[in-house]
């Protein structure tokens, strides 16, 4: 009861917890990062977290890309990005998505999405563990979600 003054109009501004809806796309790697993200997704659901993985880009605020970007997946990433409503952000997780990793550009691969677009969150690792991904997401959220595009 002693802290009610916090809620008065002249009180401290408390950050509002906005849920983070993530749409994950595997853009053509070994799917190791995707496996780890599936583990993370299970933990988030179990923990009733406000960070969620959604099944359509139309609900998402963050596009999380893993794997090297193949030539055939590039238009799909573009379509998913265009389908995202309002403020949208891009995250690249794993070595392949950050800079191409072991799959250097070739006739079928364009290289990592992190080198081709401005990503708000870059997390290297082959693959990063679910704990590292969650840690990076939380740290990135608490530091401010960067400028939205």
């Amino acid at each position: 009861m002693a802290y009610l003054n916090l809620f008065w109009p002249e009180g401290a501004v408390l950050p509002r917890m906005v849920p983070l809806d993530i749409f994950h796309m595997e853009t053509g790697g070994c799917a190791g990062c995707a496996i780890e993200l599936r583990s993370l997704s299970r933990a988030l659901v179990e923990g009733h977290s406000d960070i969620r993985f959604v099944s359509t880009p139309r609900q998402a605020g963050l596009l999380l890309v893993t794997g090297s970007l193949t030539v055939d997946m590039a238009p799909v990433v573009e379509l998913a990005w265009q389908a995202m409503p309002g403020t949208r952000l891009l995250a690249a997780v794993g070595d392949c998505a950050v800079d191409g990793g072991i799959f250097a550009p070739g006739y079928a691969v364009l290289g990592g999405v992190g080198g081709r677009a401005r990503a708000s969150l870059l997390l290297p690792g082959c693959p990063p563990s679910p704990a590292e991904v969650l840690d990076a997401l939380i740290r990135w959220r608490t530091q401010g979600e960067g400028e939205a595009t």
């Binding site: 595997e26 053509g28 190791g32 193949t70 799909v76 072991i102 799959f103 070739g106 006739y107 691969v109």
Partner: peptide
């Protein structure tokens, strides 16, 4: 074809150690 990374082209000319890293992925 969405996940095709051209692994056969990458493997050609690779040393055995490089090839083994690709094979694991």
């Amino acid at each position: 074809g969405y996940a095709h990374r051209g692994l056969c082209a990458r493997m050609r000319g690779a040393t055995v150690a490089q090839a083994a890293r690709l094979v694991a992925r």
